[in-house]
Design a protein around this nucleic acid. Structure first.
Lengths: 114, 114
DNA sequence: CGCGATCATGTCGGTACCGTACCGAAATGG
DNA sequence: CCATTTCGGTACGGTACCGACATGATCGCG
């Protein structure tokens, strides 16, 4: 378990992890896209467009577009809810898990340099 | 000083901090833009366009555009190098410092929930 | 049934971003 | 001096994003 970070350490952590990601030619996700991506992987399902929009406090079309991008990257997948066909359930993918695992490593490595 | 983070903790930290930023209607910076921004504030000056491009390993026009955006937000400022007028020096601003300080708080708060 | 509410997504005009290629200004050195 | 190199920035064609609004499919209630 980590102890409390100082502000300076927090920024340095963010800086080093982002540097790793950018240099590795990782996908250039915006803050919204990354937040949405992590929400899908870390919060318990089910995830719907409306639910994600409410959680992130952004518009529904913004969620749809972010899902378009994440889907293009094969980081998330859409599936119709068979019990209520108005809903779309957002699911994880293998490729998304792999990227997230790599990303987590960058953060961990950055935290080791503090 | 913080101890080593586990991968799970690293992702949770990132998730919570980004959620705070997105919900606060913070600027929706991309990974590249944020990395560049942090580079300017955390690495020792001077910062030039070419130097930043080399450090981040991205193209020069990408740096120019990121600086356009950060300048529009008043997070960074350009200034001609008077000793070599081909160079542009990238400088910090008060507004950028304020935002970064707020952002650091979000990360620290997120780390406290681990 | 039928009809309003709900859900995701399409459409629109506008803006920002990408990489490649090119530009002019300034510095350098032969 | 003048050719060359080194700067930051711009032009271009293409893609993706934004918010606001409209649409089509589906549900659930009276």
């Amino acid at each position: 378990m980590a102890e409390t970070l100082s502000s300076q350490e927090a920024l340095k952590l963010w800086h080093q992890a982002l540097l790793s990601s950018v240099r590795a030619e990782g996908p250039d996700l915006s803050a919204r896209q990354m937040a949405l991506f992590l929400q899908v992987y870390l919060a318990p399902p089910p995830h719907t467009v409306r639910g994600l929009a409410a959680t992130l406090q952004i518009s529904k079309p913004a969620v749809v577009r972010a899902l378009d991008t994440l889907g293009r990257l094969d980081f998330t997948r859409r599936r119709r809810d068979q019990s209520d066909k108005r809903n779309v359930l957002i699911q994880r993918t293998v490729k998304g898990s792999v990227f997230l695992s790599e990303f987590a490593d960058w953060v961990v490595t950055a935290s080791d340099t503090l």
